[in-house]
Amino acid sequence: MSHLLEIKNLDVKFDTDEGRIIAIDNVSLTLDQGKVLGIVGESGSGKSVTAKSIMQLNPGNTIYNDDAEIIIDNENVLKFTSKNDLKKIRGGKVSMIFQEPMASFAPAIKIGNQMIEQLLLHKETEKNQAKQISIDMLNRVGIADAEKRFNQYAFELSGGMRQRAMIAMALSTMPKLLLADEPTTALDVTIQAQVINLMKDIIKEYNMGVIFITHDLGVIAQVADDVAVMYLGSVVERGPVNEILKNPKHPYTRGLLNALPDINNLDAPLKPIPGNIPSPLDRPTGCVFRTRCPEPTHDCKEGNIEMGLIEVSPGHWVDKCCVNCG
């Protein structure tokens, strides 16, 4: 069976005044229909850039490598340039939900009009039909009084309701792939739980593939089937969610897990990962994680190691350099 989404050898660089920044370094990922792939990592690890690459939403100074491929339905969407092709990956087959539900609605356009606009663009429907689809969708995501909300503006809705509306809008065109870029980060915890439950239901109901970006391993544990841990633009470990959470091999993954508070011993001091993410302008040579690795070797620094991932157990891949660390 072919994959719903296949990212192969993706490199992303940004041309800036300070020089060329490596944002993504040789990332390969796959996602099957009906599955949720969680991408975890700190800010600046390249989670969002990876997702935005799928829709070609990165800013104008972005440079993709020529041999990178992002394949959806046997087409390399990274090579799309025409308006009609881009439409397919922007709102057609792929939809995206952003972190800030308030900021991702245009403030002076009614929610309903933004939904209709998108539907008319992607589906062959009449305006009335598009309105009905939108209202049904708002109902489906649990928005009471959907008809009224349809005619309101984003600022008139509460935070949780806005994110529900955003989900409704993203789903209304029935995409095959949903990119959720920290969809619950800006919400408070009770609303977070509701939105996560809603997303789980909807993923099951529509049987789509989802990339769920977050820095919250707790959320990953709830929603994801597979996890990819990213650090400084590279995937350092990936595999089934239970395997990664129970048997992490990479020191960074272990660090992330250790940094979570222990529910049984709340007085225990939190253990942050020592050091900071290096500046992208000052990218470490050799193994990118060596500046924060508990036991870096000479080889890590010199880069005398094979790069890339190695499979340690079925479906569980770890960075070759760090597989035996710690």
Binding site: K87, G91, S104, F105, A106, P107, M169
Partner: peptide, 21 residues
Amino acid sequence: KLYVMAARARGISGMKLLWRY
């Protein structure tokens, strides 16, 4: 602003995107 990117992510493009957003 994010809403402009969100609109682009919904497939809106060109002059329509520019004027309406």
